[in-house]
């Protein structure tokens, strides 16, 4: 990766991070955070870790960011409500302490890191999609396949319970004396 591209992506990541913490609108904060995550994924790819880069984008942007947005949507947080005014003094103190601890940790980690000329390059296939796929579909084939059944069971359970709630509210309104009919009603709606 050329130096200028790294500098550009690094600056973009910092801008995104600042956007995450400085904006008032929660949705804008989440979008800033998404920018950081996508940017990091691109950085990983530039360093040769293509699989990690894609996983970063799929898992964090695809799944976790969507979860954030769902929570904001479910809690119905309005666009104009944000933390107004300064945070309380104790909150600032705790934040400063946490930031100092993180900085100290990073300092220790980087001061013990191996020198750049001592770093060995790894085989190009390491961590590639092909290698990952080979391990995933041989040694961990059963784990991979059973995980898909796990997700299926979770979906069936969630749908069964969620449909129940919809049926219940309709039934309270209209037909309290006919057990089961509300559920059938909602099943027809689903169908």
């Amino acid at each position: 990766m050329p130096q200028w591209l790294f500098a550009f992506l690094a600056a973009l990541a910092i801008i995104g991070a600042l956007g995450t913490i400085l904006q008032r609108n929660l949705v804008h904060c989440v979008l800033g955070f998404a920018l950081v995550l996508i940017d990091l994924g691109v950085l990983y790819m530039g360093l040769g870790a293509v699989t990690v880069g894609f996983l970063q984008i799929i898992v964090y942007v695809g799944a976790i960011m969507v979860l954030f947005l769902f929570v904001i949507w479910l809690l119905n947080i309005q666009a104009d409500t944000g933390v107004r005014g300064g945070a309380s003094l104790s909150l600032k103190l705790v934040g400063a302490l946490a930031a100092a601890a993180l900085a100290a940790e990073l300092f220790v980690v980087f001061s013990h890191a191996p020198k750049l000329r001592e770093v060995r390059t790894i085989a190009p296939a390491f961590g590639s999609v092909a290698t990952l796929a080979h391990v995933l579909f041989s040694r961990y084939l059963i784990a991979f396949e059973t995980t898909s059944l796990l997700l299926l069971a979770a979906i069936v359970g969630a749908v069964a319970l969620a449909r129940r709630l919809a049926g219940q509210s309709a039934e309270v309104a209209a037909m309290p004396s006919q057990p089961g009919s509300a559920a059938r009603e909602s099943r027809r709606e689903v169908a």
Partner: peptide, 16 residues
């Protein structure tokens, strides 16, 4: 997890 997720849902199957 497969067992538990299924049984969590089954435990709540009595709608009312």
């Amino acid at each position: 997890e497969t067992m538990s997720l299924a049984v969590y849902a089954l435990a709540g199957f009595l709608r009312r």
